[in-house]
């Protein structure tokens, strides 16, 4: 059994976008803070810290889920995919990102990281979604800029429809 005292800094190793990385976290450190401030990976955004806005959504252990509702110590040994892992090493955008770009599916871009991660997992599970299914999936995200229309279009385009 693992027990970590409240003020004890624990070494936490996670595989982020295929690469093992480590940092230290007290039990209460949110995964979002760990990714951003301990690992220096600022791609995962923090919009509400209570699980509603969806900006921090990442694929953790195979599930698209909120990283603000996870504590770093819970994730030791897990695989995490974040928005930084989507494009090629040379910066070439992947199909989904390109579709977002071409459809104006992002404006300020703050919510986009989370939406891209949800959409990535969603399209793996449901490769040819209809608009209602896309909107249902998107209901777990708040985007204040776009009004969602162009996001729906982009996801549909990325699904090859």
């Amino acid at each position: 059994m693992l027990r970590i005292k409240p003020d004890q800094k624990q070494r936490v190793t996670v595989t982020v976008n295929g690469k093992a990385v480590s940092g230290y976290a007290e039990p209460r450190m949110l995964l979002t803070d760990f990714l951003r401030h301990e690992l220096g990976m600022y791609g995962t955004h923090v919009g509400c810290e209570h699980g509603v806005c969806g900006a921090c959504t990442a694929i953790i252990d195979g599930a698209a889920t909120r990283s603000c509702l996870r504590y770093a110590v819970q994730c030791d040994g897990l695989e995490i995919q974040t928005v930084e892992g989507l494009a090629d090493a040379d910066g070439t955008l992947n199909t989904l990102q390109k579709a977002f770009n071409e459809n104006g599916a992002l404006q300020c871009g703050f919510c986009t990281a989370g939406i891209l991660m949800s959409s990535t997992k969603f399209l793996q599970e449901n490769p040819k979604p209809n608009d209602d299914e896309i909107r249902d999936m998107l209901s777990g995200h708040i985007c204040r800029c776009t009004g969602y229309t162009q996001i729906v279009r982009a996801i549909r385009q990325a699904s090859g429809q």
């Binding site: 059994m1 693992l2 003020d7 624990q10 039990p27 209460r28 803070d33 209570h50 504590y71 819970q74």
Partner: peptide, 13 residues
């Protein structure tokens, strides 16, 4: 918006 300090316990059984 950060939690209070707590002990983290991850039982195996």
């Amino acid at each position: 918006m950060k939690p209070v300090a707590f002990e983290y316990c991850r039982p195996d059984t």
